[in-house]
Write a protein that binds this DNA or RNA. Sequence first.
DNA 1: TATCGTTAATTGATCAACCAATCAAGAACA
DNA 2: TGTTCTTGATTGGTTGATCAATTAACGATA
Lengths: 188, 188
Amino acid sequence: MPKIGAEPIRKAALINATIFEVGRTGSLDVTVAQIARRAGMSPALAHHYFGSKEKIFLSAMRYILRTYGRSVAERLPGHGRRGRLDAIVRASFAPQNFQRETVSAWINFYALALINPEAGRLLRVYHRRLRSNLVLALRPLAADPVRVAETVGALIDGVYLRAVLTPGGIDAVTAEKLIFDYLDEVLQ
Amino acid sequence: MPKIGAEPIRKAALINATIFEVGRTGSLDVTVAQIARRAGMSPALAHHYFGSKEKIFLSAMRYILRTYGRSVAERLPGHGRRGRLDAIVRASFAPQNFQRETVSAWINFYALALINPEAGRLLRVYHRRLRSNLVLALRPLAADPVRVAETVGALIDGVYLRAVLTPGGIDAVTAEKLIFDYLDEVLQ
DNA sequence: TATCGTTAATTGATCAACCAATCAAGAACA
DNA sequence: TGTTCTTGATTGGTTGATCAATTAACGATA
């Protein structure tokens, strides 16, 4: 069934399969063959479209970060004094970003960022954007918005880290509550 | 120069080399040959003493956790009302636990815990111990010691995660301050 | 003390498995 | 006909693990 215009469909399928496989196995040690099979094609086709395994990983990472960024953006014009802040935190624990596979992939991409300069760059961009979003939201609420933003950022990552380790799956509600409790306490 | 009693020395050298190499490369994708060479012996000898690469990793992980646990314990009989609490936080950012290689290895062992049941078990033991230490220290200080303990635990992990990503090395003082600022705020 | 068998330490060589990447060639559409 | 899509086959390289063989310390014995 070789129709024209397969490239974006194939690429999307490969990215999805990558996140799923990395998340499922909990490791970056997935083979191109594994990813390709999950995406319903041959390993050679995966190389054809992406060129290398590294580029597949980076695209998957970009996709995760973009998805997260978009889910923040579409919640952003929040209402009320804490609207913006709530939107950011809620986005972090929305189902699409807080599924077991996604979070597991997230952690492994974090590890990738230690060795791959481009992955590190992507992660730092995400950090900067999250930080500036948080600072903006916190300016009318906190005496020291920068410090609170740093704390919330670290807290979110820490909660993510611990969430995947709990054997009985992830509880988004509890995770979210931890952040909100902190915010309630620190903002008067 | 085969002398008798080499086993503990060789094992210790291999564990050190493992942490160093995993930390240096920022990945669990280090070969047994790499580790063995760094420890000054042949790959065959590493297998002779540990049996498998997996067991080398697990021993290295145990060593990191034990070192951390000990550095908490020896600071523990802290003075003053916040003595115990300060001790735990300070231990987390003491040089031996907060060196770039150690933290980098730490993150990779976190990823290992996603796929290796024994590694997961080790990490959960560490979490439980840290939690109970924190709860004990927080009981006379906080209205809800369990919640604050969870928050501090997640915060420490989050700060670790972010620390290795900063290109210009790690700043223990800033990291420590973030935790103490949170505690100052939440404990009246 | 000299000798010798036992045990621990150590490694070079090797194997079987796995894998990322390449390429040539076939198949379907425009 | 030419372009896109697709894959089977192959290759070059890597690696965890094994094993036989060697070297050196130890301990007992004569």
